[in-house]
């Protein structure tokens, strides 16, 4: 899922300072699961904004709502009738949701409330880690299911480097396991340690964002 976190309230209040009618719009999908932009976080952020903005301008109105998926125009259609009541939309979705609202309602001011961080998974309560960089050409099969692009601090496709010690990464030994130790352990568990010796050629990054904005078209379902 897409993992995000809320921007500091001071940053939001400075962006929202010129406005008196604000609609906070959450998204009930990825950012709700990572406790950044679902209904609960929308309520908390709105309460904080009312306290902060209401001090100087008690007439400031901060309303809140949530859509199921802000990245889909059909789901945002329910917002249309009420948008005339607001000067600005504070979107608590990932960057995709923010852009969808801005495109869909092109006369509305849309401000992002979240910093979109990465594609990842929950590690436990209140902790998420990156697992996929969306490189567009998945090589997980060659690395025993451990992605060296996201999990190795140096993104090494042939590793490990000299900074791996006791299974930990020199960049942050407390928090980070060495991805290449994980790959080694997996090959051992799979009984395919010989694959560890395969030298990977340089990766073609043209399928990643470096190759320009990406788009998928499926004629069969259009």
């Amino acid at each position: 899922m897409i993992v995000a976190e809320r921007k500091p309230i001071a940053e939001l209040t400075s962006r929202l300072a010129p406005y008196r009618r604000i609609l906070v719009v959450g998204c009930n999908t990825c950012v709700a699961v990572c406790s950044a932009g679902g209904a609960k976080e929308v309520a908390v952020t709105s309460a904080l904004l009312r306290i902060a903005l209401g001090r100087e301008h008690p007439e400031t109105r901060v309303d809140e709502t949530c859509v199921e998926r802000q990245c889909e125009v059909e789901m945002n259609a329910e917002l249309a009738p009420s948008l005339g009541n607001y000067e600005v939309i504070l979107s608590m979705a990932c960057g995709v949701g923010v852009q969808t609202l801005a495109e869909q309602f092109n006369t509305a001011v849309v401000i992002p409330a979240l910093n979109t961080k990465f594609m990842g998974r929950p590690e436990g309560l209140g902790e998420w880690s990156e697992r996929c960089a969306g490189c567009g050409n998945c090589v997980l099969e060659r690395y025993a299911g451990v992605c060296p692009i996201t999990r190795c601090s140096k993104n090494l496709l042939n590793g490990p480097c000299g900074g791996s010690a006791n299974g930990r990464c020199e960049v942050d030994p407390e928090r980070l396991p060495c991805a290449w130790q994980l790959i080694y352990d997996r090959w051992v568990a799979l009984g395919q340690l010989d694959r560890y010796l395969t030298n990977e050629p340089a990766k073609d990054w043209s399928s990643s964002l470096h190759g320009g904005p990406r788009r998928i078209q499926r004629e069969d379902i259009r």
Binding site: I9, A10, L48
Partner: peptide
């Protein structure tokens, strides 16, 4: 923590 963000 949250309230301190808004100056309380």
């Amino acid at each position: 923590t949250l309230l301190s963000e808004v100056g309380v």
